[in-house]
C-alpha cells in the first residue's frame, strides 16, 4: 500500500504508565475483593442454613415420616397408603435438569 505519511511512534511517559498500572490494579483489586466477599457470604449463609436445619431436626419429636402420627392419620382418613398409585400421583416429584440452559 502506497502512502506518504504515517503516525509517529507511540511514546508513553512515566506518568501515563503509572496511571495506567494504578487504574488497572485498582480495578482488579476491587473486583476480586467484591467477588471474594460474595463467596465468603455464600459460605457463611450455607453454614447458617445447615445449622438451622439440624437444629430444626433435633427439635422434632417425630423425625421420620412413617412415625409422624398426623401424616399416618391423613393416609388412614383418606383411605390410601404411602406407596399407593394415588400417593405417587399426588406427592411424587420429578427431576428436571436445569444446569443446561
Amino acid at each position: 500500500m502506497q502512502y506518504d505519511y504515517k503516525e509517529k511512534e507511540v511514546k508513553i511517559n512515566r506518568r501515563e504508565f503509572l496511571g495506567f498500572i494504578g487504574v488497572l490494579t485498582a480495578a482488579i483489586w476491587s473486583g476480586l475483593y467484591a467477588v471474594t466477599d460474595v463467596f465468603v457470604d455464600r459460605t457463611k449463609y450455607i453454614k447458617m442454613r445447615t445449622a438451622g436445619l439440624y437444629q430444626d431436626d433435633e427439635k422434632q419429636a417425630a423425625r421420620q415420616s412413617h412415625k409422624n402420627k398426623s401424616l399416618m392419620n391423613m393416609y388412614k382418613s383418606l383411605n390410601f397408603s404411602p406407596t399407593s398409585p394415588l400417593a405417587e400421583e399426588l406427592f411424587h416429584t420429578h427431576y428436571i435438569d436445569r444446569s443446561v440452559l
Binding site: 506518504d4 504515517k6 503516525e7 509517529k8
Partner: peptide, 24 residues
C-alpha cells in the same frame, strides 16, 4: 478498506493530528 486518508481531508477534519504524523 485501504486504511488511507487524503492529506487534504485530514488537514480539514484532523488539523491537530497533522503534528503527529511524519513523512515516510
Amino acid at each position: 478498506g485501504s486504511g488511507l486518508l487524503s492529506k487534504k481531508h485530514a488537514e480539514k477534519h484532523h488539523p491537530l493530528w497533522m503534528d503527529e504524523i511524519e513523512k515516510v
